[in-house]
Design a protein around this nucleic acid. Structure first.
Lengths: 191, 191
DNA sequence: GTATTTTATTAAACTAGTTTATTTTTTTGG
DNA sequence: CCAAAAAAATAAACTAGTTTAATAAAATAC
């Protein structure tokens, strides 16, 4: 089993044809395949030149710690998704950590910029993450936590199942206690 | 008085030397100088290929309208700042509108990408706006409206003075009524 | 497999922020 | 400069979400 098969198939999907041997060679030379245990830190706020991660299997969360020491999950990433700080190579304000045991292909910002010239659709992924964050921003401002939870449940039920509840509450911007209340209310309603 | 003087001086600042005549010629050929009246719409949600704006004088706001019809100010831009949807040329979800009468230099995404190759610091401005939005996101999640108001007052008192209060409340994610309460409380405290 | 730790639930008292409605103040246009 | 419109203030009743603390359930480790 080719170690980079999942990565190649991602590229083949975005260019809509098979990769040549030379291309496979080039790709595997700039990516690094890495495996992390459950709850393992990948990078810390304050670090520079953090890498981008294309996830093969597993689940990651990118979060911030505020002045009072509270964590806020900003984005999750699971298999076949990209995660990383778009602000790199500047010093990041995020922590990146696994939720589950994870295998991912990582690449430096420099190599990523070069690759983007060859595969412009890579850039689209970057933008997508920006736009996603903007939508989330407005959703949290304009909707109740209950509505936002419902929406997450519709858009990505798998994520809701795989994440501990306190990670979801932090993602929705409420306390674990309040999310638990929302869920209890939902269950009752269904009868 | 040279029509593009403010724009040239911005470029001279980022490259840290004077522009040649040829460079000035090139710059003025891709930008368009535009003037908008107070409360004039510049682009609407749903439009494609929206332009980027470097503001000479005046004040703009970029906002979203949610399902219930409520407006949310996402970013403001004033003289010597950039504003625009980074997601362009894809269909935007923002409205861009003046708060004050405004003069700005506008440029298309295509021309902007080309210019970025010559002046890489242009890209830094783009990133800055992304990072700024992320910080705002966390601030709104993790702090009270009162703290966020205080912070805005410290970081940009000029903006607070120039904006009607209901635009600020929308930016902070609270109702105008509640912001008015915060301000009344602050005034009392000071005695 | 059971002890220990981690995560989720429940309850009660509280606070930040909303809603609606009325009044006052400020801004704008002719 | 005045009339009309827009913006801000105030009040009161309400709701979404927090905090603290105690209990229950689930996951993990040896």
């Amino acid at each position: 089993m080719e170690e980079y098969a999942v990565l190649y198939s991602y590229f083949e999907k975005i260019i809509n044809r098979e990769l040549t041997e030379a291309e496979e060679e080039e790709i595997s030379s700039v990516f690094r395949k890495e495996t992390f245990n459950k709850k393992q830190r990948i990078f810390n706020a304050g670090e520079k030149n953090t890498r981008h991660y294309y996830i093969e299997t597993g689940l990651l969360r990118m979060y911030i710690i505020d002045q009072s020491g509270k964590e806020f999950n900003v984005l999750f990433g699971k298999e076949r998704q990209w995660l990383g700080d778009l602000g790199t190579p500047a010093s990041t304000s995020y922590f990146l950590e696994t939720v589950e045991k994870t295998t991912a292909f990582s690449i430096s910002e420099d190599a990523f910029s070069i690759l983007m010239n060859k595969y412009p659709d890579l850039g689209t992924n970057i933008r997508r993450s920006y736009i996603f964050l903007q939508k989330r921003f407005v959703a949290i401002l304009s909707k109740t936590a209950e509505e936002n939870y419902e929406e997450l449940l519709t858009n990505d039920p798998d994520l809701v199942q795989r994440l501990p509840q306190y990670h979801i509450s932090s993602y929705l911007g409420v306390t674990p206690v309040f999310l638990s209340k929302i869920i209890a209310k939902r269950v009752k309603k269904r009868d």
